[in-house]
Nucleic acid binder design. Structure first.
Length: 107
DNA sequence: CAGATAGGAATGA
DNA sequence: TCATTCCTATCTG
């Protein structure tokens, strides 16, 4: 760990998701399109974060609004965190109005 | 090289 | 709209 391109990519993703405001989420695909990588890579990168909670990886959900995974506490915990932050749920999915594109946070 | 993914798009009912 | 199915790209060992 150190200096590999994978590690740098992870750092970049962690920085990006800290731009997501409370009460909103983005999607794996949104981040993937911005960086030109596969959405699965985004999930893999988030799954390997070593600073849970501090890095708000709970603010990244699937493209259809369903939660996706969460290695720290599972999807239930992820859902709880999002509700605490004011994210609106429509059944088991996040309301579309709470989903933003990371590209809009950068430029 | 083989196996495993925190996803996504296509499909059919 | 929902569930099923298949596909992609990349990490890890």
């Amino acid at each position: 760990m150190g200096g590999s391109s994978w590690d740098m990519l992870k750092e970049l993703i962690y920085i990006l998701i800290q731009l997501i405001p409370m009460g909103y989420v983005t999607t794996y695909g949104s981040i993937a399109r911005l960086l030109g990588i596969s959405p699965r890579l985004v999930g893999l990168a988030l799954a390997q974060n070593s600073l849970p909670i501090i890095i708000p990886c709970h603010r990244v959900v699937r493209g259809d609004g369903s939660l996706g995974g969460y290695s720290f506490g599972g999807p239930e915990f992820k859902r709880m965190l999002l509700r605490l932050e004011g994210v609106v749920f429509d059944g088991d999915r996040v309301d579309r109005r709470c989903i933003i594109d990371v590209a809009d946070l950068v430029g």
